[in-house]
Write a protein that binds this DNA or RNA. Structure first.
Lengths: 122, 122
DNA sequence: TTTAAATGATACCAAAAGGTATTATATAGA
DNA sequence: TCTATATAATACCTTTTGGTATCATTTAAA
């Protein structure tokens, strides 16, 4: 076995992008950023069944966005920020586009505050 | 109408996160970062049908990741980086986690290069 | 004015997603 | 040991997703 993790090899960030596509899962990450939690504690913060939450946690784990740590009969879910950094790094590739866009807008405003039509799209 | 865009209101970034979940769509964005393209030119870069590419472009447009500009019988697809920045900003909320993680690792290595077990997870 | 090219629009299909309900298993505590 | 609790696993359902094939529409060009 060359690859650990999912059975089908995706790009390194695919699992994380997939996990982040769902708003409930993103909200779970926000909660886990406050403190690690058992599944039960995560469930308390949503109006869906335990089964649904469990599925979300599995997908987050598959994307390496969280790690799970058994503790007696509980399982502690912990945020794993490095997978988020992987996604941030992918986006970083495009950052010069929005940097330059903001830069152009800034210089246009500075050079002529009353008209900056040359910076509009279309 | 209070909200423009999709009929059901999601968070501002939902459309972008959804669009980014598919690897083909992310690849389209990478291509459009090189230059704007017609649909036909995008199709030339993938082994799927024109219909499938069209659907991906619609989803990218719904997520405001691209804009489409009619030009004669062609339609020019252009990267819209600000929606990517929206996603990057969401991730930024978590950046202190990976910053501190890297920081801890760095200081652990500096103080004792041979053993940094106190920084391992678990 | 035909004709070919670029795109749009639909109908259809299989698989994945997101959810529920139910049953099973492991473990802390009386 | 018996019981309640925390979680796991499974079957099932509906909607969404990613894809195809096909037909329609718009427009450039011979």
């Amino acid at each position: 076995m060359t690859f650990t993790g999912q059975s089908i090899m995706h790009s390194a960030e695919q699992g994380a992008f997939r996990a982040l596509a769902d708003p409930t899962r993103r909200q779970i990450l926000v909660h886990l950023a406050q403190s690690e939690m058992t599944i039960g504690e995560v469930c308390d913060r949503f109006d869906i069944t335990r089964g649904a939450v469990k599925k979300h946690l599995v997908i987050l784990e598959e994307g390496n966005l969280i790690s799970v740590h058994p503790k007696g009969r509980e399982r502690i879910n912990r945020l794993e920020p490095m997978a988020l950094k992987t996604v941030a790094d992918w986006l970083e590739y495009f950052s010069h586009f929005w940097d330059s866009k903001l830069g152009n807008l800034k210089s246009a405003i500075e050079s002529n505050p009353k008209s900056s039509k040359e910076n509009e799209n279309g």
